[in-house]
Design a binder for these strands. Structure first.
Lengths: 213, 213
DNA sequence: AAATGTGAAGAGGTTCACAGCG
DNA sequence: CGCTGTGAACCTCTTCACATTT
């Protein structure tokens, strides 16, 4: 499966579950495109879905149930994942809540922080640990995925230690470039960067309006 | 400037500021690529930077100061932006802190929530308002940018009201497709989606390892 | 008739190879 | 000689047009 298709597949998965909740049992590629605000064309949707196997019926559309199931399979959402969260400030806390509430297959398995007032407190039965034995705790808890919600200067060390503990995928919210030798999948979410994408386009929009005038 | 270059430009901006802090005043395209973990090639960097004007000196590299300045200009980081945050739970709180700490040009100008225990409390001098007069408050505060950190079912209404209040760019953390008629720039950040991108690749890695065996 | 599935054309961005300059 | 700047080749993904199936 091609790279940029994956985020689209997740979008389909989400929209289809919504469609199901609202009572539908089939949907067409056009209908799905409409649900997604036409940000993805119906042709694109058909191309993506046909790559997963023969799931549609010509002249009819797609049955939602098997489609959701197949998407969940391809996205790896049919197995359990154990997540370690490092940094349990507002961001870490928000992520813990968010992740577990949206996808039942994600379990927070360990939480770390350096703040003395947080260490030893519990969230949903998980006790916040200090970072001194991160590698072993992560390994013992069987964490596959790590979430980095620490300040930028601490991000690299955190990433290395998560990798040492056997984590093979990292979601990084710290504005820092992570250097890892091991085959770890890293996905960076740079909030300040996202903001500046907005400001760039706002500025560009202003500039072009002035150019017209 | 081409679309996918913008996130790269922000990455350069961040790395260059780091380089400056560590005492450098010039840098080569190769050096910058190394700082970014070679996730971007030096050729790509030169193409991107040359599109901004003649900023490098052949046989020498780039002077950091003018480059940072030019990048900030292109990214729209040289003007002030007023941000409205809707939803002041853990996520909203984290974003408020994060945004203001990273880029001094972003000012949180208004905050909204529906929780009675939050309404009326203050954060950094900004009083959390209920959502009843969102349009006028946002307009009076001169907000350009809105951040949606509410549950998915409330996202669409929030977006529409922000747009009515004059907001022209939205950073949306709710897993929902926003339908807006006005020329509003929307950037969606889907945390569950990001997680499933990781799980897809983890699953794919497992599958290919089994195929090899 | 209606909607999927798909080879071919097209668009957009990245990489290459090297010219140009300090 | 080192490093930037850039036209051309390349490649990947998207869109088009239409054959195909119910």
């Amino acid at each position: 499966m091609i790279d940029p298709a994956i985020p689209r597949l997740y979008a389909y998965h989400r929209a289809l579950r919504e469609a199901k909740v609202s009572g539908k049992s089939t949907i067409t590629s056009h209908g799905l495109a409409a649900m997604l605000g036409h940000s993805i064309s119906s042709t694109q949707i058909r191309k993506d879905l046909s790559a997963l196997g023969t799931l549609g019926r010509r002249g009819f559309g797609y049955a939602i149930d098997p489609l959701v199931e197949q998407l969940a399979f391809v996205l790896g959402l049919e197995q359990d994942w154990r997540v370690a969260i490092v940094g349990f400030g507002y961001l870490g806390h928000a992520l813990a809540t968010f992740i577990t509430s949206r996808e039942s297959r994600f379990k927070i398995a360990s939480i770390f922080d350096v703040a003395p007032e947080l260490i030893g407190t519990a969230w949903q039965g998980i006790v916040v640990a200090d970072t001194s034995n991160m590698e072993t705790i992560v390994q013992d808890a069987g964490c596959n995925i790590g979430v980095i919600a620490v300040p930028a200067p601490a991000a690299q060390a955190t990433a290395s230690r998560l990798a040492s503990g056997g984590v093979r995928a990292i979601l990084n919210f710290a504005p820092a470039t992570l250097h890892l030798r091991a085959p770890v999948i890293v996905r960076n979410i740079d909030l300040a960067g996202e903001m500046s994408i907005l400001t760039h386009w706002l500025t560009a929009a202003d500039a072009s309006r002035e150019a017209e005038a």
